[in-house]
Design a protein around this nucleic acid. Sequence first.
DNA 1: GAGTTTGAAACT
DNA 2: CAGTTTCAAACTC
Length: 550
Amino acid sequence: MEKIEEGHFPPKKAESEAASVQVETDNPAKKLARQLDFTGGVPGQALTVSLQEHANQIIQPEPQLQQHILLMPMQQAPVLPPQPLIRPLSMQSSSEAKDGTPKKPKQCNCKHSRCLKLYCECFASGIFCDGCNCANCHNNVENEASRQEAVEATLERNPNAFRPKIASSPHGTREEREEAGDGLVLPKHNKGCHCKKSGCLKKYCECFQANILCSENCRCMDCKNFEGNEERQAHFHGDHANNMAYLQQTANVAITGAIGSSGYGSPPVNKNRKIQELFSGSMIKDPVHRLGQFQQENQIKASVPPSLLSSIPGTRVSNAAALGPPKLNYRSLLADIIQNHDIKELCSVLIVYAQEAAKILSDEKDASLKQAKHHRKASYPSSGVGKVLRDDCSTGIQAESIMVDDSRLDGADVSAERPISPGTLALMCDEQDTTFTAAAAPPNDLTSLSNNTSSQLPHGQGRAEIYPELESIVLAQTRDCLKKLITLGEIKEKKCSLMVRDTDSGRQNNVSSNGIVNTVPPPPPPQQKVDSGTTAANTTRPKVHPPDGK
DNA sequence: GAGTTTGAAACT
DNA sequence: CAGTTTCAAACTC
């Protein structure tokens, strides 16, 4: 639902009627207010966002047009609003070349409307006809009176008649903004389209024409103008202009610091479609299925290594092309930095360090405990041990683990345990499942490592004490790795920023599937590669590779 | 370029 | 508000 901001947009009906009485006679203030309607925006309205994100939709007023607007009877205000003019949808698309270069303004061909109805694109956009092919045109200075009446009548019918149809709206609801994605503002048609036969993939559709996705405002049937639709992707396939706009848009997001996840757009949830789906159950109309399809695509994008993704035929072009300028499919700048094998490597390192730390710490604890045991020369109940250990622990989870450990202290199944907290254990188990077992030749066999670790802790004593220290070490390692990733991401961000500027200046760049310059990642800092033999206790040095060349 | 299709706008 | 008509752009041939 569109909300009209009071004070910005006058023509509620009563006001419109009141204004119509005095039209052309007095009250220039009201004229000024109405004039703003024609300019297609509201001062202060975040059209600049649209300007940035959809530069192909919004054109700076051409001198000729500006002059016409200045001449408009409704726009004899002393100062023109500063924001750019938004031309009607069809004129936007047809008055620009694919590369965004403004062409000659489109001329209407009206025959029966006298160019005094919204059928006329010139009238709808608030400009005089000039050089048009229209017949019996009244949208000119000579017919100012009749034109003014038409304007009033139009505004009476629809106070927003001269507002831009496409809103990228920070003024929208919070839900809409969240729906659009984190920090991104996706434009949508204020009223939505009502297409029935075009599938919203032809210029008949105002959404398609404006190069935006259909939204929940639309009441179209059999809509294919949603993210992830193959037919829609086919329409954009090979559209260089779209790719470039997408490239810049992606870069814009990156530059604004959106390093992270989930900038993906979401498919429109069309009310009408929902209704349709209740009766049809058609796969293509099913938002759940479509959402699933879309999510699946994104999951593929997210899970497949970028190198693989870009190598998949069709993936590269269709993704970028399908998105088009207004539709941003955001990929992290780290996507090309963090490779799958890096993740595995990182996990391996963490595990190895965990084991190494466990070994060191457990040796110390083991020795001291043995010494204590020896002095006492008496067996004490396991609860007593638990109590002692609990005194050293701070978390309930750890205490719980201790009890489990205690119950097994005298058991023979010590080898099955690892001196790691449950959370770490779970992570390692996951890694065992997903990383190492999946690898054809795992660099680190977790099973053997686990056994080794177990053997390093023959008695399982003192495990509780080493948990905090152990996790501290592991976390420190993780932190260092993340720091490096951040650094790499920042480097790439800078490169991306430079690339955008270079793109504007016409420099040819090799662009990857995510619209980011496909440059060789910056060489890792010298300290990234760590020599072997580093001890786990040495947390100050960043480590990527495990010790001993693993 | 003529004819057809399409969907927004206008009208009832 | 829904259905119908009018209209002009988009599209096809």
